[in-house]
Design a protein around this nucleic acid. Sequence first.
DNA 1: CATTTTTGTTGGATCGATTCAAATTCCGCT
DNA 2: AGCGGAATTTGAATCGATCCAACAAAAATG
Lengths: 359, 359
Amino acid sequence: MASLLEGQARPIRLADIAKAAGVSHGTASNVFSRPEIVRAEVRERVKAVAEQMGYAGPDPKGRLLRAGKVNAIGVATTEPLSYFFDDPFARVMMAGISEACDATGAGIALVSAANQEKLAWNIQSALVDGFVLFCIEGGSRLVDLTRERRLPFVALELGFQDETVSAIGVDNVAGARLAARHLAELGHRRFAVLSLGFADNRTGFATPEAVRSAVYTGTRDRLVGYFEELSRFGIDTAKIPVYETENEEKSTRAGLEAIFASGEPPTAILAMSDRMALIAIDWLRARGLNVPADVSIVGFDGVPDGALSTPPLTTIAQPITEIGRRAARMILDHDGAVRRETMGVEFVVRGSTGPAPKA
Amino acid sequence: MASLLEGQARPIRLADIAKAAGVSHGTASNVFSRPEIVRAEVRERVKAVAEQMGYAGPDPKGRLLRAGKVNAIGVATTEPLSYFFDDPFARVMMAGISEACDATGAGIALVSAANQEKLAWNIQSALVDGFVLFCIEGGSRLVDLTRERRLPFVALELGFQDETVSAIGVDNVAGARLAARHLAELGHRRFAVLSLGFADNRTGFATPEAVRSAVYTGTRDRLVGYFEELSRFGIDTAKIPVYETENEEKSTRAGLEAIFASGEPPTAILAMSDRMALIAIDWLRARGLNVPADVSIVGFDGVPDGALSTPPLTTIAQPITEIGRRAARMILDHDGAVRRETMGVEFVVRGSTGPAPKA
DNA sequence: CATTTTTGTTGGATCGATTCAAATTCCGCT
DNA sequence: AGCGGAATTTGAATCGATCCAACAAAAATG
């Protein structure tokens, strides 16, 4: 009768079960979390009462507060949430993170936001034990925001100057060198670079000054790698146009327009991401230029899509999945230390590069 | 001095700040959650103390318990976590869910597990306000598990008999009819069906009995749709081979082997998913058969990949993104009612279907 | 039969915040 | 000075569990 009067107003708590079954809340708790230590008879009785009262089991909200650990990691970016499912690089990375999480039974919470303010709030209030940060556009802000939370976090893909933050990156210089050498050895002498940003919110041709004062040192390292290697082949790198894009369709196409507007079009393009490289292939084809007969293109990243394009993309492949796995593990078994790892890259020659045209 | 002695042992709580600043915890709490109601002078003092003591801001764990709402929805499946980032259907769906979540500032928690036991635990302990269930293989178990949690949930893509669970599906019968009519009108008379499962853990040719006792009524509805429409063209559907797969590479290829092993190979294949359709195209090409000249193929789903294949896939397109959006919203503004929605489908004719070969 | 050990149960303390009714302070005004 | 009402601040109660020291009962031991 009492139960009827109470109505459905509020969900049943563990304490309600305890009272109804005539045991202490301590015992009731044990029935669910350590059933082996309670006498079988009592255990069954409590379970029966719980079942009959429609108890949903211990509420994780309560358990959480007591336990302190959430057993989930947050993956954050400044892009909208759909980025995680759209962007090929992010997807492969997430696969790696997922793997590590699956292995330990940890959950994944996706954190992101339309605007600045909401992002701050979402990071503040995410129920996680730590963060993996996708530091693309706006990466430094993301790091600052996350630092406030005073939880472990790893920055990805940024080449962050700041030695006090844990990070996993790749050997940008070495990778870039491989790409440059490959093209130089194929006889190319006129180059152009489709670059990632050296700092936030910038597109257009990069000045040497912009490069020197780069916030994103990963971008700078790639450029340095290209240039160092090309120099060894006697190429005057000062003349190579470097166009900063936002690693998406619009600014990349604008960059290509700008690059090909000048008198001497390049015969080889070094793109700092597969995304840009793929867009470039598309743009060139539409323009009636043949890849690789007229222009060779090298990407950077090694996303699966690159293998499927026409022609398939020559690229510097990062061990993306492995980076994801490591990042997740770094959070999962965090020991308070700052860790900075640099992974090797692999040069994958496919069909988008060929000998320089005779011209 | 005191702070030095205390060491880093345990993080600073709001209560510590309150004490240090000489205010009650009530006021300290207000400083962070409703700053406008506390006197500027006090506010600044408390903030200064917090800053100086290295307070990370109100811990969401504590806040959560009090607030009751997590402001996040769980998306669950029986597949491993990476399914969300690999599977094209899932990805589009997630994009829709993300959109709805972005709009309201809600978070997304991915729930899944390698094994049965862990899945149960993960669902039990997920910090979410409700679930969106990807009911593929093992969907009914997933529903049972989730029901225990007594939180709102929506089942997707299952065609669940059970009228007591909220669900969003598509008009399977109508969609299947469109596909069947299209092929019949093109003159095809010999068909085969690559089917999704009628119940869990089954592959191979489906018996009429299996179809009749289907757990997944969505699968059954599609078949019914195909058959009803084909009958109207005078086709004897009893002779059409229906092969149940697990909607992945291996069993789909096995199905194709089995189907083409018989004397009279089909000239048209009705696949119940784009995934299978795409695998079929691949398999046929490897066998030297031309699509659509020798065999026509119709998919189901309308995933973006279908537009990119060679030839591009003719398919029944579901409004996947919209389904995702609605599912998320159903959880986000849940009102206690059970809602069952059926969305329309759109028939998209592309290049994988053509006139039946003269033979 | 007294004493130790084992096994099970209890209930208060705790996790870290928010809420809200009641108490206090502040202010302008007569 | 005294008063009413607005603006602030207080502190106890609450959210829903787990943990653990202390205790009780039952079993084993001398």
